[in-house]
Design a protein around this nucleic acid. Sequence first.
DNA 1: CCCCAGCTAATACTTTGGTAGTAGAGACCA
DNA 2: TGGTCTCTACTACCAAAGTATTAGCTGGGG
Lengths: 218, 218
Amino acid sequence: MNATVAQRIVIIDDHPLLRKGLQQLAELSPDIEIIGEADSGPEGIAMVNELKPDLVLLDLNMPEMNGLEVLTQLKSGASTSRVVMLTVSNAEEDVVTALRSGADGYLLKDMKPTQLMQKLREVAEGRVALSPNVAECLARAMQAEGARDTAPSTLDLTDRECEILIHISEGESNKVIARTLSIAESTVKVHVKHLLKKLGLKTRVEAAVWAVTHKDQF
Amino acid sequence: MNATVAQRIVIIDDHPLLRKGLQQLAELSPDIEIIGEADSGPEGIAMVNELKPDLVLLDLNMPEMNGLEVLTQLKSGASTSRVVMLTVSNAEEDVVTALRSGADGYLLKDMKPTQLMQKLREVAEGRVALSPNVAECLARAMQAEGARDTAPSTLDLTDRECEILIHISEGESNKVIARTLSIAESTVKVHVKHLLKKLGLKTRVEAAVWAVTHKDQF
DNA sequence: CCCCAGCTAATACTTTGGTAGTAGAGACCA
DNA sequence: TGGTCTCTACTACCAAAGTATTAGCTGGGG
């Protein structure tokens, strides 16, 4: 593959020092460009939705909003960015949950810089990047559970929120939705706000697009 | 994209001569491989179900079983093969019926061989292949019935309007669109107003939904 | 019993979206 | 040359969307 265009990356991590390190590392790699940094989940989600990076490096352990929550919101949202977890924890549960939730990679912060860059390139090519220990960990998890159900992806929109999402995707205004459901417009606004938050989106337009591309999935 | 693997094709046509011609043509194209030939509908259906080709070339006018019947059976069955009609008839009715029945292309036998191969590659990439005359024919059919569809879809959209429509469908605000296109927000508003008028819609939400459901069509 | 989640509703405020009218610059065509 | 089209840009105004906060009501579970 010819990497003519640099990978555009957003980092979501609450450690400034680590972000600095990644910055420096990226400057040595012409095929990797860090276009944004966020030190919290919500901020990161907003940034991803705005910048639409090729890749998101996401820390697992953050105050305020857990990295896994951020991951699910990113993956359920309009974003098509690939997401790689970058963390110190190789707890089996976290690894499994992250991958189930759609993570495109799971790397540990103790990796050598050159290895890390190599892994990021692999992700850019569509592969799943795992630290060696993580791979082992994953194998064990697989053995442990054999064959069981797949696809949790609960996506906890309430009935009412789903209903309103459908109306949004049909181009209806809050006022019209309110009238057809016989509730107040202010109530519709509340539901809209909640479903936007849950989907990790910012406007009803994104919600409408999400709804038509993921219909049947909510 | 990645043409590493050749397209596996089955031909269903009752003219041995034409089949021979396609064979020779395929031998000159390393990315296209004919893995089976059938000279009747029932035989073709059986063959498709067994070989599961990437692509089926299907004649419309065959004795015993009409090509459209074969098409509907293939599309209603377990097969995931793409089906391209290859025929001498460009009767409007046939074209419309075939496409409505799920055909992935409609080509005429008088095409130049190189053109034909090109169209088949387009189908492999997920596009719909039409002979030029067929496209015209289809356009006429649309005009004829366009009254009730709420979709004027004359597609008068200018380049700029198309561009902005795409940004809308990605959930971007007028302000963001203005910034990325390096024009004023007021100008974006003008374009939005025009494209809404042309599409017969009232809000950008409807436009976004229209765009994602009719992508490639504008 | 209380607590919690979901639905309802309101107020007040800021931002964004959409309409209307005007107008200049550049391209193209007759 | 004049006419038309596209893109650009502005002003002004009103409608719609979204945020923030508070709060009453309900049903189910610990």
